[in-house]
Amino acid sequence: MSLPEFSLVYVLAAGTVAVIAAILSVKAREDFYSAILLGIVGLAIASLIALLGFPYVGIFQALVYVGATVMFVIMGVVFIGRGMVSEKKMALPGVLVAVLVFFSVLQILVSPLAQQVTTVNTALSLEGLLKVFSENLLAFFYLSLALLALLLAGISIARGETNE
């Protein structure tokens, strides 16, 4: 599937924003700014996912990931405050490792595309989502139960409710 030319500009812009925000997030001195930049990465990825042809997943990413996950991180950072952890500067080895990992991961990801030429164009639609939900009601129930249990466990741990 080839995107129209105007979409290519958006793809390049969103990709650049995602990468720059990720670099700044890793290099930021304060945890708070790092969390904010993580939110920008999430938004850029959401727009990339939407441009890829999965609009519902993009919306879900923007709402749930940026709206909930990044907010969790920001609230946690605000609660904790400055963690007082001294960081050592490892710029050169870090860049070297990043470049090596980048090329190896890209090689792994591109190799399936070289063998596959056809595109299956049946992305998730609202009807498809409702169909999947209605056909797998029990699975969604179990997943919801698991998520609820995890959330309760998190709240319990944060409140320090131990057996002592």
Partner: peptide
């Protein structure tokens, strides 16, 4: 791939658990 490698380096070099 770039996001993966940047995140991996960040996870390895930082000492703060939040980072």
């Amino acid at each position: 791939s770039m996001l993966f490698s940047i995140g991996l380096v960040g996870a390895v070099i930082h000492r703060s658990a939040v980072r």
